[in-house]
């Protein structure tokens, strides 16, 4: 005879579709009844903001936008905020897209922000585009951009691009900020910072974040923006608000649901164990 399920067993075996439904509701409800959530900033995001804020007219920043549409939800807001801050401060930006499905998406985000600030391609920024094997690309760019990118994304020779005159490699930039999903961040830590000693900050997806905190503690990166929370913090500091801050209310409601399920299943587990001990 099958063992009859008691309440505690039921608490631990909720149908996954019920969980999906409740999570869906937790996201849909704030969409219908919006509310704001205060965003506290952390030192690791503040240091990235203050670094970009300290740059001025004529300074160069190297921005790696090394992700593709699958992670744009988390990383687009921070890329937009950094680009807008650079363009508003007249900082020259050199950009790559080292994720294979990313170049088209990166081009569109650059155009969107550049249009807002009247920034001009080849004058205020240069989009180098994509080349395979990110490790080799990062190593070569530490010597000379032209080794890997004789031409930019649009096929113009780097020798003819005004913004690329007088700058040879990324060590001549004030620093590198790599917004990425995947192991390109490791290439920047090992080759960019390790080999050439360039000041490096990272913007990473939430899944990756815990792997990169040790590099923050060791000083190999000077700042870290972890996922959507990092983006929301950066938006709050820079004042350029898109989906980062907007999504914090949704994050809060879904996290409450997930916490509730974790608590329910743990209570169920402890109580059922107690019951089993009682029965012997």
């Amino acid at each position: 005879m099958a063992k009859q399920e008691n309440l505690f067993d039921k608490m631990m075996s909720i149908d996954r579709r019920v969980i999906y439904l409740l999570l869906g509701l937790a996201v849909i409800v704030p969409a219908i009844f919006p509310f704001d959530v205060p965003v506290a900033t952390t030192p690791e995001v503040e240091s990235v903001f203050h670094f970009v804020d300290s740059l001025g007219t004529g300074d160069y920043l190297f921005l790696g936008v090394d992700y593709d549409p699958s992670t744009m939800a988390e990383l687009h807001p921070m890329t937009k905020a950094i680009l807008s801050q650079c363009f508003s401060q007249d900082v020259k930006v050199i950009i790559t897209a080292l994720s294979q499905n990313g170049p088209g998406m990166v081009e569109s985000i650059i155009n969107e922000i550049a249009d807002q600030y009247g920034a001009k391609n080849h004058i205020d920024y240069c989009f180098l585009g994509y080349k395979p094997y990110p490790g080799i690309v990062v190593l070569n760019m530490g010597v000379n951009f032209k080794l890997t990118f004789p031409n930019d994304y649009y096929g113009a020779s780097l020798d003819t691009i005004p913004v690329m005159q007088g700058i040879k490699n990324y060590t001549e930039c004030a620093g590198v900020i790599d917004v990425c999903a995947g192991n390109i961040a490791d290439m920047w830590i090992q080759f960019g910072n390790g080999r050439y000693g360039v000041p490096l900050a990272l913007g990473v997806t939430g899944v990756m974040a815990s792997d990169y905190y040790p590099y923050l503690q060791s000083g190999q990166i000077f700042g870290l923006m972890p996922g959507m929370k990092g983006a929301a913090e950066y938006e709050s500091l820079s004042g350029y608000k898109t989906t980062g801050i907007r999504s914090m209310a949704y994050q809060t409601s879904t996290h409450v649901i997930i916490l509730a399920f974790i608590i329910i299943s743990n209570i169920g587990w402890f109580l059922s164990r107690k019951e089993e001990k009682k029965i012997g």
């Binding site: 988390e74 997806t205 939430g206 996922g227 959507m228 929370k229 999504s247 949704y250 879904t254 996290h255």
Partner: peptide
Amino acid sequence: VMGRISLLID
């Protein structure tokens, strides 16, 4: 969890 939920929110 934050990362996965971010995709749903987007």
